[in-house]
């Protein structure tokens, strides 16, 4: 305002291209700043440090007898741990040769054939399939059956019939010892 009565002494701002350069630079710097400032407000929704710290869980397999399954909670989701019978292992391996909706061999899905460990969440829309407890409907392939929309899983947890697109997911896990497994 008060400076308008006298020349600024800046020859550069008379030059339109230099003026445009100033505007573009400022706009770019401001845009970069705005984008950077947005990040903390987005990233805060990602899992917090305490949530991540609890993302592994150890399970004692000792008490689970052959033919039994248990359900443990890992990252808020059920994980099915099944001590498979030899019949189940055999039937799973036989089906390896068939054409399946989501081709995977049984060997690819287990580290130790006796123990099938997978996330108990139907890959269709997230319901929990039946079949992990005695007396529940195990579906047409003797594995698991999701009652929400009728997906059938076999004894290796592979999708065989129904709307689910993929096999039940296998979480990261390692055997700490013969009878202890660490999931996550």
């Amino acid at each position: 305002m008060s400076d308008t009565a006298k020349p600024l002494g800046d020859a550069e701002i008379d030059d339109k291209s230099k003026r445009d350069f100033l505007f573009t630079t400022t706009g770019t710097v401001a845009a970069v700043g705005a984008a950077a400032a947005a990040w903390p407000f987005i990233h805060q929704m990602n899992p917090a440090a305490d949530t991540l710290a609890l993302s592994s869980t150890e399970v004692d397999l000792g008490p689970i007898e052959e033919g039994q399954s248990i359900t443990v909670v890992w990252r808020g989701k059920p994980v099915f741990i099944r001590h498979r019978t030899s019949t189940e292992i055999k039937s799973a391996r036989e089906d390896d040769k068939k054409v399946l909706p989501d081709n995977e061999t049984d060997a690819e899905r287990v580290k130790n054939p006796q123990w099938l460990i997978m996330v108990g969440v139907c890959t269709h829309l997230g319901c929990i399939p039946l079949g992990n407890k005695g007396g529940e409907n195990k579906g047409e392939y003797g594995g698991w059956f999701c009652p929400c929309h009728g997906s059938h899983y076999d004894t290796s947890g592979r999708i065989r019939r129904g709307p689910a697109p993929t096999n039940l997911a296998i979480p990261e896990y390692t055997f700490v010892s013969d009878t202890r497994v660490k999931i996550g």
Partner: peptide, 13 residues
């Protein structure tokens, strides 16, 4: 305090 310590950028916000 969890916001200050564990939430991503929680202290900043």
């Amino acid at each position: 305090e969890r916001i200050m310590r564990d939430v991503n950028y929680g202290w900043l916000i």
